[in-house]
């Protein structure tokens, strides 16, 4: 079978917040805590996924909890798995 694409209309634009220095969810720098941690001294650890994307643990956990069916990385949409090195 031969498929010919006659027309293609792109209707989406992606622009990721992707950044090595900032959390892709709260957009705050990794050297500080997430905005839900009131004090800079609070324990706000960073976590990595197997896809190598990094987030504040507080931020990624809130996202994963909101996703009942498939839990994907916010940046690359791969299935999220904690990278427990």
């Amino acid at each position: 079978m031969k498929v010919t694409i006659k027309n293609w209309v792109g209707v989406a634009t992606w622009r990721w917040v992707a950044n090595d220095d900032n959390c892709g969810i709260c957009r705050m720098p990794f050297d500080g805590c997430c905005p839900d941690c009131k004090l800079p001294g609070d324990d706000c650890p960073l976590v990595w996924g197997q896809c190598s994307h990094c987030f504040h643990m507080h931020c990624i956990v809130k996202w994963l909890q909101s996703q009942q069916v498939n839990q994907q990385c916010p940046m690359c949409r791969q299935e999220w798995k904690f990278n427990n090195k």
Binding site: T13, W14, R15, W16, V17, A18, W63, M75, R77
Partner: peptide, 12 residues
């Protein structure tokens, strides 16, 4: 996805 933001939404 929470990696999106107001500008990416409005551009879509």
């Amino acid at each position: 996805s929470p990696a999106q933001q107001l500008s990416s939404l409005l551009l879509s």
